[in-house]
Design a protein around this nucleic acid. Structure first.
Ligand code: FES
Ligand code: FES
Lengths: 138, 138
DNA sequence: GACAAATGATACCACGATGGTATCATTAAG
DNA sequence: CTTAATGATACCATCGTGGTATCATTTGTC
């Protein structure tokens, strides 16, 4: 079980890279060699980010993408939502329908409580925070 | 994305039911009608619980299962581990191999921190706690 | 203008996890 | 002996996800 999908992770790393110097056009090829990620998948990911308004695109030769927002304005939580859909740990749904027995499930209630704490923290986390972490070493 | 698998949830609910009066033999059929869960799947779940040492089984006609431990000694976390394998939100693994880029992933570090808090709480949660919740109404 | 290199859009594939079913043998109560 | 249960195990269907491929379009460079 994993909280983060690869797509989300790739997106974060691409954005982190581009945030190093914004306004510069970065191509998929560049990201591939720089981060070692599979090109076609990266491409799809970037296209999604563009459609969602996080990146501007430059078509044609020497084209690529540029970052559209301030790192502090990009919440990891939002990226997760884009790539993984609605984030919820405690909604027992199956085939897109809510489980009929939610009401008699004390476990759900507890998990919901924990979820709340987690989401609180996730929603506060931005790309800017990650950049700080990066600079701090590791 | 879901923290709890259905199998875990079913297991918890079955155990909760049996904990109401322990020492009584409960059959799959009973659980099916009582909780409205699909019988064959329930069966599989109970067998797993028996193999893991949480239930004793009585074979033959009028057979079934009996609870083997005190509710306070059954951690939800352990049940999750049984039915869903190793619980971890922040280990980016794929095809059972760790992602090569973990070290350059500041995101992982943050998620790991959040995971810690969540697991702390999960490990503290026992069936006995859920029984208390249940009695308290909802 | 031709070519190369990029994105836009979209369809497709492969794999694994999970929910769920089915079957046959064995055991034991009535 | 029949019936109702578990033990063991194999099987199936669906879905989410990681990943690929294709074709059209755009644009800088020679
Ligand atoms: S099985 Fe869905 S809420 Fe419990
Ligand atoms: S992609 Fe695996 S750790 Fe980042």
């Amino acid at each position: 079980m994993n909280l983060l999908a690869r797509s989300t992770d790739y997106a974060v790393r691409a954005i982190l890279f581009m945030a190093q110097d914004p306004d510069q056009v970065t191509s998929t090829a560049e990201l591939e060699s720089e981060l070692g990620l599979p090109r076609p998948f990266m491409r799809k990911t970037l296209q999604t980010l563009q459609k969602s308004g996080y990146l501007d695109s430059v078509k044609g030769n020497k084209g690529g993408f540029t970052l559209n927002r301030l790192p502090s304005a990009i919440r990891v939580f939002d990226l997760m939502t884009i790539f993984q859909g609605h984030i919820s740990l405690g909604e027992c749904l199956f085939k897109k329908e809510l489980c009929s027995c939610v009401k008699s499930c004390p476990l759900r209630k507890e998990v919901k409580k924990m979820e709340l704490g987690l989401l609180e923290r996730l929603k506060k986390l931005t790309i800017a925070d990650l950049m700080k972490d990066q600079k701090a070493g590791i």
